[in-house]
Design a protein around this nucleic acid. Structure first.
Lengths: 252, 252
DNA sequence: AAGTGGTCTAGACCACCTG
DNA sequence: AGGTGGTCTAGACCACTTT
């Protein structure tokens, strides 16, 4: 019995249990990839939680790609995803490139940072659903890893959602991370389109590389809880330094 | 009261309820984007299910990007994702390009189909964890949409998981779809790496286009329930005809 | 037959939002 | 204060896998 105290608890109990299972069985290799976790019955007894709660924890492990679960068999620990010295950016979760870098033990630096106000063009209008000609904020900058320019970014945001000077003062490299701090914005999900492109002269100049090479263009619209678009982000990333991964699941 | 019969039911009740909500409120526009669904209390009464079951259905709606849910407020119907005349391939679920095409009302045709047996190279060895020099099956083909070549594909698979002639006889355009029919393989998830490339002469020849243009290279390893790699797929797709989307969620 | 996960229920308490 | 969603429990029955 190792009951987690119910009082003064912030995180859901199922999250707590999920982390405990990772620590107790997976991270330290107590249960090796290919082997089974203890049964749900044993785990409910060990952590003194209901089966519903335990199953929520197992579901999280599955969603994170750590185990696969089979009826009548149990939960098998899966091998870790490939690791690399490059930054590995997992696209299935809404997180910034800066966060992916710091998880790889690297620091992304920001250069050529420029904040400003512009006018809504037809293209911005389709992305942010704002009238053409209205004012719109933008932020542009390049990202540096180990003294190499690896990405060029422009973000557009409606003037109505937040004060530009406020977010500017809170900016520490990632606009997304700064805006996520404002829970009142209720940023909720994003639609990301992935397009391979050839480096044109404009982007190549920002990145300080020759034109003609391959570049990954990521077009992201971040939506709030009511489904209204709140940020339109455009990023061009050089593939030499960042690997883009998605873990795709079977479902339904 | 519209209780779903419990007997002779195959699908989970929560799935049933999920679809009913889509049909009764979302698909027909009875609740417009930006408006709230009825409360959980009302919905449990309407469908005569427990709150746990209803919440599982709401969770599915959220995972599918149809609603956002706020504590103390309710579930807001979200606007539909962007539509397009191109094929839209959603990468967060494990599904074939052929399926994405058919969901867009298009038919992907297959040309230059070739089945064969080869020898494990060092690169194949790292992907499929097979000894170098062992035999391995491969399938290569190009995909045609509206008489245009849009993709070139090679899949590699261990000789041990299935008989090549069997899967060949069941092949209807998509190797993944054919293998997914074999539930004994327990295909479970896939790690997809996304790389922008410049068309080289080999791939350009397969695609019948000039070299030097942008192409999206998708490197996929499909894993079984025990975490063993079962398929290594390499796909080069021309961006003119297919749009690649991911809906990224906030989590934890 | 025994053990595993898959699903469902009824009821409870809490946190959050709105008037 | 009242309604909404967020979490948790104990117990039940079913489907699947293994012995």
């Amino acid at each position: 019995m190792e009951r987690v105290t119910l009082s003064r608890r912030k995180r859901p109990l199922s999250n707590e249990v999920c982390d405990r299972i990772v620590n107790d069985y997976i991270a330290n290799g107590n249960v090796k990839p290919g082997s089974l976790l203890p049964s749900e019955k044993e785990l409910t007894a060990k952590y003194d939680v209901s089966r519903v709660t335990l199953r929520a924890a197992i579901k999280s492990l599955h969603d994170r790609g750590l185990v696969s679960v089979r009826n009548g068999v149990g939960a098998t620990v899966l091998p870790r995803p490939p690791v690399s010295s490059k930054i590995v950016h997992h696209l299935e979760r809404l997180a910034s490139l800066d966060k992916a870098a710091s998880e790889a033990g690297k620091l992304l630096e920001t250069e050529d940072l420029k904040w400003g106000e512009s006018i809504v063009t037809p293209e911005i209008s389709t992305k942010l659903r704002l009238p053409v000609g209205d004012p719109v904020y933008f932020v542009q900058r390049s990202k540096i890893l180990d003294e190499a320019r690896i990405a060029w970014t422009i973000d557009w945001l409606p003037t109505t959602i937040i004060d530009l000077d406020l977010i500017r003062s809170e900016f520490k490299g990632s606009l997304l991370d700064a805006l996520l701090q404002h829970s009142e914005l209720e940023l909720n999900y994003a639609d990301l389109e992935i397009v391979p492109q050839i480096l044109n002269s404009e982007i190549a100049e920002h990145l300080g590389t020759p034109t003609g090479g391959p570049v990954l263009y990521l077009d992201t619209v971040v939506y709030g809880a009511a489904g209204q678009p709140d940020i339109w982000g455009q990023v061009w990333v050089l593939p030499e330094h960042v690997r883009f991964f998605i873990r795709r699941h079977m479902q339904f």
